[in-house]
């Protein structure tokens, strides 16, 4: 009987240990910033979802485009209606992998390279970006900043407002992960 209990306990531990390879973040923060001499535009959301497998280095991000909030409501409407067409393309998705992933079970700060594909506005484009992963108490959190060129994703800006919207916008991602249950 004693042996059985030990074994079961061992199994649970093994299971728990395994589960910690996969981490989730249900409130991934995403924001973007467009700077022009005429106008600065920024929008944020904390409704992104992300998952990371620290063993394989796989990464996945998904966010509903219509959850981005702007300071000016009319901009939000135009963003959804005219530029991102969130009726047709409701999600932005990034599927990627850490290039040579470090041992993210150990606490520490890691500079990592990420290789993946961003699907935005119905257009897939490969990206190679850098990110910082901080592991504290066994829980990783990730920060990344990268540039998206609107033309790469076929997001058209009409000539009338071309001075107000930057050709390249800076995207910031913040995710604090917890073990996936």
């Amino acid at each position: 009987m004693k042996q059985l209990i030990t074994l079961l306990a061992g199994l649970f531990l093994a299971h728990a240990g395994f589960a910690q390879d996969v981490f989730m973040c249900r409130n991934t923060g995403l924001s973007f910033f467009s700077a022009t001499p005429v106008e600065d535009i920024d929008a944020t959301t904390d409704k992104g979802t992300s998952a990371m497998n620290v063993k394989t280095g796989e990464l996945y991000f998904k966010v509903a485009v219509n959850t981005f909030k702007f300071k000016k409501q009319l901009m939000e409407e135009h963003f959804n209606e005219n530029y991102l067409e969130s009726d047709k393309y409701p999600y932005a998705i990034f599927k990627g992998k850490l290039v040579s992933p470090p041992d993210l079970h150990k606490d520490g700060t890691y500079e990592v390279a990420i290789d993946g594909v961003l699907s935005l506005h119905g257009v897939d484009k490969p990206y190679k970006e850098k990110a910082t992963i901080i592991v504290k108490d066994g829980k990783p959190s990730a920060n990344a900043k990268f540039n998206v060129k609107l033309a790469d994703h076929k997001i058209k800006i009409p000539t009338l407002v071309i001075k107000n919207i930057a050709e390249v916008v800076e995207v910031t991602v913040k995710a604090a992960y917890n073990a996936a249950s």
Binding site: T49, A51, E58, L59, A64, N66, K95
Partner: peptide, 18 residues
């Protein structure tokens, strides 16, 4: 991971705009 995120997704009542 994709399926995992898909499972987690909560339906939010986003307003219909415009």
């Amino acid at each position: 991971l994709e399926a995992l995120v898909g499972k987690e997704e909560v339906k939010t009542h986003e307003p219909v705009i415009a």
